[in-house]
Amino acid sequence: MKTVLVAVVLLVASCAVMPDPLELAVGEAASAASSAALALEQQHRGRTTGPAARTQVDDALRQATGLARGAASATVPSVLARQQDEALEQLAVLVRHLHDATDAVGTGRAPAVAVRLRDDADALTRLEHRIGAQA
């Protein structure tokens, strides 16, 4: 009973001290986008193995899918309603590009997909900052 109480208090406190979940999710999505882009670039330059690059892209896709799902079901303060829509839109784009990336590993399309992922990462980072400023 007491532990439950402590856990609840801590959870409530965490909402006060930690950044908004939406901001965190968008930040992590930017990281996933950059990670997949790095893997594609590396493999295209012959600097990593096929399985390692594919694993890194797959990991990014899995992470982004999870984040998209989380962001869709997250309840955000009303000031962030517009940003949430924007985040969902960008996450959907990212997931699509990452699906592209899994097909592009080891092909000539890899650099082009990597460029798109880098753009996604930049856009997500800008959005993350705007959410941080707003919240």
């Binding site: 990281s31 996933a32 992470q63 990462a121």
Partner: peptide
């Protein structure tokens, strides 16, 4: 510098 925070082993070895 690339803003990649590690969440998987593939990133550890990258």
């Amino acid at each position: 510098p690339q803003g990649i925070s590690v969440t998987s082993l593939s990133q550890v070895v990258a």
